[in-house]
C-alpha cells in the first residue's frame, strides 16, 4: 500500500510573547490509500495543529521540525508553487464549523469552482458547472443548491458542501478536522456514513480528527490518541475503544456512555482537571497530574510509546500491571 501521508517525528511550536509553546511533540502518523486513521484528544492537545501542518497551513509564528510527506513529497521544504499545486489537488481538508470555513458572501458554486479553476486550466464554464452539480449530488445535495449562499443552508448541508469542495480536485488524501463537531447526532451519523462511503468508493486515504472517540471507533481503521502534543496510544479502532490501555484513553472512552451498558450510562466517568499548559509541562509523564493510576515512578521520566502485541502501542509504564 502506498503511503499517502507520512508524518515522522513532527514537532510544532508556536512563538508567543511568553516564549515558545510546543503544541505537537514528536508525532508519527502514516495514512495509506483506502485507510481511515483517526486522531482523538481533548481541545488543545495539538490535533488541529497536526492537521494544519499537513498542507503547511500553520501560522507564520509556528516552527515545524521532523518530516511531513504527502504523496511522497516533502511538504516542509518544497517551494511555494509546488505547495500550492499540492494543496487541494493532492490533499484537501474538510474544516470544522463549516459556517465560518465558507465565505459568507460567495455562492456555494463559486467557492467550489474556485478550487477547480485554480488547479485545472482550460476547463469550460459549462463543464465546471456540471462538475459542481455532480459533486453536490455525490454528497447528497440537489445540484440546484449550488446557487445558495452558506447562510441559506443548514449545518449539515454546509458540512456536505465542505465535503463536496474537498472532493472537487479529486485528491488522494482527505483530512477531516472535526467534521461533525457542530452537528446534531442524526446529521453527524449521516456525515460519517458519507465520509466512510467516499473512502470505500474513491479509494482515498483519510485522517479524521475528533474529540469523540466513539465517532472514530465507528469509521476508522486505526486510531491515535493524543495528549499534550504526544501520541499516548495507538492501535486498531475497535481495540483502542473497547480495550483501552492508557488511562487517558480509558477516561476518554468512559466519557461517552455506551448504549446497552446501564452501568456506564448512569455513571459516565469523566476526567477531572484540564490538560497541562504546554509551556509548563510537568516532569515525567504529562498525564500524571490527572491520572487515577499515578505512582511515584510516573513523575521521573516521560514514558516512551511502548510497542504492545500487534499494532498496538501505549505510552504508559504501568501497561499490563493490574
Amino acid at each position: 500500500m502506498t503511503e499517502l501521508l507520512a508524518l515522522r517525528d513532527v514537532s510544532v511550536s508556536y512563538g508567543t510573547l511568553d516564549g515558545p509553546l510546543p503544541a505537537v511533540r514528536g508525532v508519527d502518523v502514516v495514512v495509506h490509500a483506502g485507510e481511515v486513521v483517526g486522531v482523538a484528544g481533548e481541545s488543545g492537545c495539538g490535533k488541529s495543529t497536526l492537521a494544519s501542518t499537513v498542507l503547511r497551513l500553520q501560522p507564520k509564528s509556528a516552527t515545524v521540525s521532523g518530516t511531513v510527506e504527502v504523496l511522497g513529497a516533502d511538504v516542509l521544504t518544497m517551494g511555494w508553487g509546488d505547495l500550492r499545486a499540492l494543496r487541494w489537488a493532492g490533499a484537501s481538508i474538510v474544516f470544522q464549523g463549516a459556517l465560518h470555513s465558507l465565505n459568507p458572501v460567495h455562492r456555494v458554486e463559486r467557492q467550489i469552482d474556485e478550487a477547480i479553476r485554480v488547479h485545472e486550466s482550460g476547463v469550460s464554464d459549462d463543464a465546471i458547472e456540471e462538475r459542481v452539480g455532480a459533486l453536490l449530488e455525490q454528497v447528497g445535495l440537489p445540484p440546484a443548491r449550488m446557487r445558495a449562499y452558506p447562510h441559506q443552508l443548514s449545518g449539515g448541508q454546509r458540512q456536505r458542501v465542505m465535503i463536496a469542495m474537498a472532493l472537487a480536485c479529486r485528491p488522494s488524501l482527505i483530512i477531516a478536522d472535526e467534521p461533525t463537531t457542530a452537528l446534531d447526532v442524526m446529521v453527524q451519523a449521516q456525515i460519517l456514513d458519507l465520509l466512510s462511503g467516499l473512502v470505500k468508493d474513491l479509494g482515498v486515504g483519510m485522517m479524521i480528527i475528533s474529540h469523540d472517540l466513539s465517532v472514530l471507533a465507528d469509521v476508522c481503521d486505526r486510531v491515535l490518541v493524543m495528549y499534550a502534543g504526544r501520541i499516548v496510544e495507538s492501535g486498531s479502532a475497535q481495540q483502542v475503544f473497547s480495550d483501552p490501555q492508557h488511562p487517558y484513553t480509558r477516561a476518554l472512552s468512559g466519557a461517552f456512555p455506551r448504549i446497552g451498558d446501564p452501568a456506564a450510562r448512569y455513571a459516565p466517568t469523566g476526567l477531572a482537571g484540564d490538560p497541562p499548559d504546554p509551556r509548563e509541562l510537568p516532569t515525567g509523564c504529562s498525564f500524571a497530574p490527572r491520572c487515577p493510576r499515578v505512582v511515584d515512578r510516573c513523575r521521573e521520566a516521560e514514558p516512551p510509546l511502548l510497542q504492545l502485541e500487534g499494532e498496538r502501542a501505549a505510552a504508559c509504564i504501568r501497561v499490563g500491571e493490574p
Binding site: L57, W88, I93, H100, S101, L102, N103, E114, V118, H119
Partner: peptide, 13 residues
Amino acid sequence: EDYLTTARAKGLR
C-alpha cells in the same frame, strides 16, 4: 476568519 484558511488550503495565491 476561517474561510481565509480554506481559501489558502485550496491552493490560492
